[in-house]
Each structure stands twice: as structure tokens, then as C-alpha cells.
Design a protein around this nucleic acid. Structure first.
Lengths: 215, 215
DNA sequence: TTGCGCCTCCCCAGAAAAGGGGATTGAGGA
DNA sequence: TCCTCAATCCCCTTTTCTGGGGAGGCGCAA
């Protein structure tokens, strides 16, 4: 296949880097530099003046952070793919940047060839990330999806089960039917659950259980 | 640098693929095949008999799913890196596999060279993913960290507010006090909330709201 | 003007949940 | 053996929710 030419705009406050990237992209078949900017002020005008396929975005820039810029950009031009290109590799910023709508995250020490590859990948719908970034993203994912908090309230197996039915939205009566025990037994379990969780109603128990991932 | 030789074990129920992978790995300098297995039964024994650096793990296998296997494996040998190698690309399985402890996720249609590269990357602490997988992982991350689901139920501002107090575990009376409106007004809002969410109780409303990130 | 949606408040009857008891099994440990 | 604890079930009273109504005010748009 003959690859389409990808038009890339650059936002970075570091002039030498901007120039190096421009040279690299313009010097490589299949890539073409659109706009090159030192900050994301008046972002919409800059983008509209020269609409790119892919934006390379730094995080630390004067006036406005790259993360804010991504949010704005994706709000206005959802089809433009954003590839973060920064030195930061702390979970917090990675998370924010990706949630803001970036589709890739590369570190600035990435070799040119891989950077070009990453630009193409993000253009083609992939999500290139530097290896260490990818590992951190997995870490974040595991943190969110991670296992239920291991019982900081000493719930018995049965109580846990009742609580879990509660979080499905079932009423006392329905839980009784579901677990094939009597209504009064469910009530009994509920009482001790309330004690242990320090709550006083189904609503509160469900809220606490879901917020603290007890189930 | 001269790359270390990486010892790779393979779990996949598809014989031709096992053989192809073995040939590929053993035929490439820097890679060496450890154990090759058709299923993860007696996993600990298999691993102990021949401890690998990296495990290639299929998901659909007889007897036991690859996801279960990863969980067990990472529990027993946390230092062994697992690279999923499967045909599945649904969010659910990707999520489960990665949460189970896999450090990479490649599709089976990946070209050999990239597969080798992925094995090395996972061995070196990266988290290689096929482009489409990476994009889905980002989607998952955004879903978790992302903003509240933008009102698929057409809740009015006031209703949203009531719902949000509900998810804090407050009772009708408490919400009335909190919002400084009458008890009956809160009830009124609750009724329309129930209608819109298709639920019939506070418990259910809280469960739905928290699970679908409506607040 | 006439609707319409949103927010506000009210009443009533029946259902469900909460709070307070108490009681019986069976398993497992002291 | 005795004791504890999880799990099961029961009763009674009070409080809270639910479901069915209705109704007035306000802002906005047709």
C-alpha cells in the first residue's frame, strides 16, 4: 500500500525541538508539517487556519497546559488525533492527558523512526505509547478494575452475598427469593451488615459498597 | 548491547500455532522456547518444571480459561511476565486479562517480527499491545476516569442533584433538608427519577446511578 | 395567548424497611 | 465439654418509601 501523507501540527514551547520535528517530518515521505506553534493560545484559530490530521502536543507550555489544550481541541475537532509528546511520565499527568482525549503518549526521548511510526499509528486509529507509559496505563487500569477491597469490614460470606444482591438493586423480598432463604433471615443479615458498615439503610449500604468496591 | 536470551513458554490449544511459535522463537537468536502446552491444567507443575521469563497465553483453552491461568500464574510467580496472544478483542476480555495480571496483549494476526519485538518488550518491562487493543484500553481508562455519563436519561438539573444526594446515602428527609426544599418535593423528584431510570426504589436508583456513572 | 417543562408543594393508602427484641441449629475451637 | 459464631427464622412497632392522585407558579417558545 502507498501510505497517505499525514499532516502534522506541533505544539511545543521548545524552539529547537519544534525545528527538529519539522525537519524530520518534512524530510520523510508520507509526512507533512502543518502548523508549528510555541503555545496553544487561540488554539481554535490556529487549528482552523491549517487543519492537521495529527497534533503533537507537549504538556508544559506557557499560558495553557497541553492537557487543557487537548480537551479544547477534542471538543472542537473530535476527528483530529492527538499524540502527546512530553517528558512527563507520572501517572497523574498520563491519566489526565489520556482522559482529556489524547490517543497516544510518547516520551520525548523516543528515537525518530519510532516517533514517525507512532504518528502513523495514531493516524490509523491505534494508540501508540512508549513502553514505560503503556505499563503505567495498565497499572492505572488495574487500579480501577482491581479486585474488590478485601473485606475491611469483616463481612461473612453470606453477608457479602446479600450485600452484592443489594447492589443489584434488589429488595429484601427479592433477595430472599434469590438466595432461597426467608425474608426474616435476609433482614437479619441486613442488620449486621448495617452494623458492620456503620450505615442505617439499604441506600447507604449500596452507596458505600459501590464506592468502596466492597463487592 | 547484546540482548539476553529470553525463555518463553507457550499455552495454546491450537497445535499448529504452538509449533509455528516454537519454530519462530527457537529459530531466532535471543529467544528460546521453554515449555509448550495445550492447556493450563496443573499450571504450577508445568511452570515449575521449566521456569520461563515470559509466558505466551491464549484465552480460549479447554478446561481452564487463559484469564484464570494468568491470575494463578501471577499469584505464584509474580516475576514472570505474561503476554496474552489471542483473537479476542472485546473490551470485556481485554479488561479481565489485563486486570488478572497480563502485561501485554497481542492479537494472533500480528506479524512474526512484531511478535518477537513484543516478547522482548514485555520482558524488558514494557506493555506491548496491538494498536486496536491499545485504543480500547484507552477507551476503558477514559470510561473510568472520564466525566459522568452525559445524561442518557434526560434528568433535569434538580433531578440530577437529588440523585447525587441519594448516592451519598441520604434519605428523602435528609435530602429535603440538604437542598432546602420540602419533603414532598424531593418525593416528587424521586418519582420522576424512577420513571426516567426505569427503577422502582432508592436502592435500585443508587445502584444504577453508581454503576453507570450518572453522577 | 397558549402551551410545555421544570420546580415546587400537598394528601392518602398500602408496602417496605428499620429497630428492637428473641430463638434454633450446626460447625469448630478452647 | 462448653462456648462462640455464622446462618437460619420469628414477632411487634415505628418509620420511611412507593404509587396514585392533584395543583400553583414561572419562564420560554410557538
Amino acid at each position: 500500500m502507498s501510505p497517505t501523507t499525514i499532516k502534522v501540527s506541533i505544539f511545543d514551547d521548545h524552539l529547537p525541538l519544534r525545528e527538529a520535528l519539522s525537519l524530520l517530518l518534512n524530510g520523510t515521505p508520507g509526512y507533512q508539517v502543518g502548523g508549528v506553534y510555541g503555545d496553544p493560545v487561540n488554539l481554535s484559530e490556529k487549528i482552523e487556519a491549517n487543519i492537521p490530521d495529527v497534533v503533537l502536543m507537549d504538556i508544559s507550555m506557557p499560558e495553557k497546559s497541553g492537557i487543557e489544550a487537548v480537551k479544547e481541541l477534542k471538543g472542537l475537532f473530535p476527528h483530529i488525533q492527538v499524540l502527546m509528546l512530553t517528558v512527563f511520565e507520572d501517572e497523574e499527568r498520563i491519566f489526565q492527558a489520556l482522559c482529556a482525549g489524547a490517543s497516544g503518549y510518547m516520551l520525548k526521548n523516543t528515537p525518530p523512526a519510532q516517533l514517525l511510526q507512532a504518528v502513523r499509528e495514531v493516524y490509523e486509529g491505534g494508540s501508540p505509547m512508549s513502553p514505560s507509559i503503556a505499563r503505567k496505563v495498565l497499572g492505572l487500569l488495574q487500579k480501577f478494575g482491581g479486585k474488590p477491597h478485601s473485606d475491611p469490614y469483616n463481612l461473612t460470606p453470606r453477608e457479602t452475598e446479600v450485600l452484592s444482591q443489594l447492589t443489584r438493586g434488589l429488595s429484601t423480598k427479592m433477595i430472599a427469593a434469590e438466595l432461597e432463604i426467608s425474608y426474616e433471615t435476609v433482614r437479619s443479615h441486613l442488620k449486621t451488615i448495617y452494623d458492620k458498615l456503620h450505615v442505617a439503610s439499604m441506600t447507604e449500604a449500596v452507596a458505600k459498597a459501590l464506592k468502596e468496591r466492597l463487592i
